[in-house]
Amino acid sequence: MEASRDLSALSVPLVGELVAVDDPWDPYRLIDPAGQPVEGAGAFLRDLQGAGRSATTARSYGMDLLRWFRFLWAVEVPWDRASRIEARDFSRWLQIAGQPRRPHWRRPSEAGRWAAGGKPYAPSVRAHSETVLRSFYDFHRDIGTGPILNPFPLDRSRRGRRAHAHRDPMDPPRNERAGLYRPRLPRRVPRSVPDEEFNEIFARLPSHRDRALVAFYISTGARASELLSTWQAGLDPGRQLISVVRKGTREVQELPASTDAFVWLPLYQLEMNDAIPRGQRLPVWWTLRSPSRPLTYHAVHRMFERANAKAGTSATLHALRHTAAYRMAEDPSLPLTDVQFVLGHAQLTTTQLYLNPRELHQTGEKSQVTRSRRGLEGLRGYYDLAA
């Protein structure tokens, strides 16, 4: 009979951390409570780097590993001795306990603990965690440094089935290799920001830099991290193009932007003329506070959250990408394959999601297609020049 573990009384200390290191060979390290690197996690992150994964992917995987190791440290089970019981309890813990209550930055001496009753983790977060941990133990099993049996196995009801058996060929393919403890993800329609709500948010942006950023997000459809990768030589106001580094392929791609975006950009540059370092390979986006530092994703995310709070809205930064995608898909002069190219989708089926009616943040809102025309001027001009 398996040992019973009272998860309701379990308290998980927020010990250990994922540290960013200024070393291209080892950009992130998982540190245990004693301040020593966790070699098992380090070997896995180095393997990811060898497979061509970016540093941001290593950080994302490292945060999932940190969450798992904190749970193991609390139940006093070594990572290489973890079994399916620990994996099951960890999956239950994520569902019920939710996110931890973190200590305030002004009171760092307060010990944070992971107790039940926090904000629930989204199913997508739990699914990503399950995938990362299953890959982690698959890696160590293959090289002989981990348990023989993966604590996060595949669903036993699917492993013995023939792939796509008894399935309508017109239906989208199913994932026949889903994990046993992987939650089922609801199929969500990408959410768009209504024009009235967007205007309210834009009117409360405090600086020309923020207005330029949001104008580029809403017109190019670039991901948040992609737009921040633009360097000063990647701006081409004459052709209304801006160069970004794509998240997945790491390739440089020119994206058309609206006239509005290139109006706010020089205003931001004039406003910060003395504070922004000049150089062809230096970033375009910098912090407003001195000393100037390259703008990060988390800083932009907080900026947009503050503007939302002032406007009394609930839009997200990523919803701007969805809004731009909907506006492009609604334009009858743009082929869907061109929209796919601009958005950087690997599959056309992903772009086809934006052919569905919009799901707005506020019900009863009516989108204005006339505003989408303005955001697509640069896109049509780009293809006219290419022709």
Rank of each mutant, 00 (worst) to 15 (best):
R177W: 11
A222I: 11
L180I: 11
R177N: 09
F198D: 15
N199I: 15
A212R: 12
R191S: 12
Y181K: 01
I201S: 02
P190N: 06
D195E: 06
F216P: 07
E200W: 12
I201H: 00
R188Q: 14
L205W: 13
L213P: 05
A222N: 09
F198T: 13
H208L: 06
Y217V: 05
I218S: 08
N175C: 04
L205S: 11
R211M: 12
I201D: 01
L185N: 03
V189C: 12
T220D: 02
V214H: 13
E197N: 10
N175I: 02
G221Q: 00
A203D: 15
Y217P: 05
L205Y: 13
F202V: 13
E176F: 02
Y217E: 11
R191M: 11
P173H: 01
R191K: 14
R209E: 06
R174A: 14
E196A: 12
P173E: 02
N175F: 02
A178C: 06
S207N: 10
S207M: 06
D210N: 06
L213E: 08
P194A: 11
R191Y: 08
N175P: 01
S192W: 01
Y181T: 00
R223W: 05
E176H: 03
P172K: 08
A178R: 15
N175R: 06
G221K: 00
L213T: 09
S219G: 08
F216T: 01
R223T: 04
R211W: 03
R182K: 09
A212P: 13
A178I: 08
D210P: 05
L205V: 05
Y217S: 08
R191Q: 13
V193E: 01
I201Y: 01
R188K: 15
S207Y: 04
F216Q: 10
S219K: 11
R187S: 04
H208I: 01
S207I: 03
F216N: 01
R182M: 06
R204T: 13
N199A: 15
I201T: 05
A178H: 09
F198A: 15
R223I: 02
E176K: 02
S219A: 10
S207H: 07
H208Y: 11
I218F: 08
R223A: 10
P190L: 04
D210F: 00
R204I: 09
P183K: 00
